[in-house]
């Protein structure tokens, strides 16, 4: 989709700003969020002539690349860790549910970063397989396989007793 006017770009910007902000907040250091979001939309503006009809996966992928590239040398990553919320921030709906949430938070932190990434795109970004694959830059088949394995890994962690202390502080 070749964006011709500022009005057309503004429409895309307004439609995707909130989602992109949340995407980056789930992954980047709080001090870097503004920079990443700003860089992403600046890149979109500069490449407005080649944005796809649905710009959201493109924006997510660009932001993801920016976050990955911010680490240099030995710390360079190929996947992004995703923060999870705090179990005790939710309404108290009974001890059983609280315990389950605590288990889920602990299990999430035991997941590989790659597994966190594929699950987050499905559960919190609510992306289709096609859009999630475009965000990660892989085929739909590869994403579907990774998602299946990530779900299985999480299920296995949930059935494994947690042996260490459970921290309720979100992953930094």
């Amino acid at each position: 989709m070749a964006i011709q006017t500022e009005a057309e770009f503004t429409e895309i910007y307004r439609a995707n700003f909130g989602d992109l902000l949340r995407f980056v907040r789930r992954r980047a250091h709080p001090l870097n969020v503004d920079d990443i979001v700003g860089e992403t939309f600046l890149a979109a503006w500069r490449r407005r002539g080649e944005l796809p009809d649905d710009a959201r996966p493109w924006l997510f992928r660009t932001a993801r690349n920016a976050m990955l590239n911010s680490a240099r040398g030995a710390n360079r990553q190929t996947a992004l860790a995703v923060r999870i919320g705090q179990a005790d921030d939710l309404p108290d709906t009974g001890m059983h549910l609280v315990d389950t949430r605590l288990d889920l938070v602990a299990a999430w932190r035991e997941l590989s970063v790659a597994d966190q990434e594929v699950l987050a795109l499905s559960v919190w970004e609510d992306l289709s397989t096609k859009d999630a694959a475009a965000t990660l830059g892989c085929t739909r088949a590869a994403y579907a396989m990774r998602l299946t394995r990530a779900r299985r890994s999480l299920a296995e962690l949930l059935t494994t007793p947690v042996t260490g202390p459970i921290s309720l502080v979100p992953t930094a």
Binding site: Y13, F41, A87, L90
Partner: peptide, 28 residues
């Protein structure tokens, strides 16, 4: 897991909306 979203709120705050407008002006 959906309930444990680190950023659950979908609506922008007033401050976020203002910053969004400022960024848009800078980009354009």
């Amino acid at each position: 897991l959906r309930q444990l979203d680190f950023v659950p709120t979908a609506t922008l705050t007033a401050a976020e909306s203002a910053r969004s407008d400022e960024l848009l002006r800078s980009v354009l």
